[in-house]
């Protein structure tokens, strides 16, 4: 009797441990880049690789999705659909140059479709374009000094005045660090239109965040730096 009971307890502990490991795997902060073998092994039906694909991209996909809508449920639904589709179509998938970009593009399409559906029930304002909003709540972000604070609020105001598509291209360019080709692919544009769109956006950004704002900040910065260099 006693021996059997001990064995059972061991099993329970093993189960407990493995479930803790599972939980930890989900909470671990993951890198953007993923081992390229993971994609290949996911396509061959490896469940662990699939889980890794999910865990590597969940956060950044949510972050990107959140630029289009504040509706968390909608984003989660789109992520759900995206990954269900990935698994069911895994054998038919190719090898994208960038897995992340491929996921961005797919999520974007899914999200747009969902938002389009919702539009039929919710009154949407005059903005016929899709929404894209620059994250406005900067209060919680650590900012070094006052001049940088001024610069940031200036940038924010300018970005928010841009049309949604320009806001998105600025985001993909300067937040995600993508080149024209990648941006064109995600946004479903050709390379020339992507360039034109980004050109317009940067031009407006540059025009509005005029030398004035930058130089106030920079002279302070440079004075500090040069004094550092002298010292």
């Amino acid at each position: 009797m006693i021996i059997i009971w001990t064995l059972n307890e061991d099993n329970d502990i093993n189960l407990l441990c493995s479930s803790i490991i599972n939980v930890m795997a989900f909470n671990s902060v993951s890198d953007y880049s993923m081992n390229p073998d993971t994609w290949v092994s996911f396509k061959s039906g490896n469940w662990n690789a699939y889980v890794e694909l999910y865990n590597t991209h969940f956060k950044i996909l949510n972050n990107y999705g959140h630029k289009f809508t504040n509706n968390t449920e909608l984003i989660e639904d789109a992520v759900h659909d995206l990954f269900v589709e990935l698994w069911s179509k895994r054998t038919k998938l190719g090898n994208p140059i960038s897995v992340r970009n491929y996921l961005y593009k797919s999520l974007r399409n899914l999200l747009f479709r969902k938002m389009e559906k919702q539009k039929r029930f919710v009154l949407v304002g005059e903005n016929a374009d899709y929404p894209f909003h620059f994250e406005a709540s900067s209060d919680t972000i650590f900012i070094e000094n006052e001049s940088e604070q001024i610069l940031q609020s200036k940038i924010k105001t300018v970005i928010q005045s841009l049309p949604s598509r320009q806001q998105e291209i600025i985001y993909l360019r300067f937040y995600e660090g993508l080149d024209y080709e990648e941006i064109a692919d995600i946004m479903g544009l050709n390379k020339t239109s992507a360039y034109k769109l980004l050109y317009k956006a940067i031009n407006k950004l540059q025009e509005n965040v005029k030398a004035g704002d930058l130089f106030v900040f920079l002279t302070l910065l440079l004075l500090k730096k040069s004094s550092l260099v002298i010292n």
């Binding site: 889980v51 969940f58 959140h66 990954f83 709540s137 940088e148 610069l151 300067f174 937040y175």
Partner: peptide
């Protein structure tokens, strides 16, 4: 410096990683 400051200041955005739902969404999937 100006160009680099413009980019780095823009990049100081609040993030939405939705970590609290990461496991629940996967279970649903």
């Amino acid at each position: 410096q100006s160009a680099s400051k413009l980019i780095s200041t823009y990049r100081k955005q609040e993030t939405f990683y939705n970590e609290k739902s990461q496991q629940a969404v996967f279970e649903r999937i």
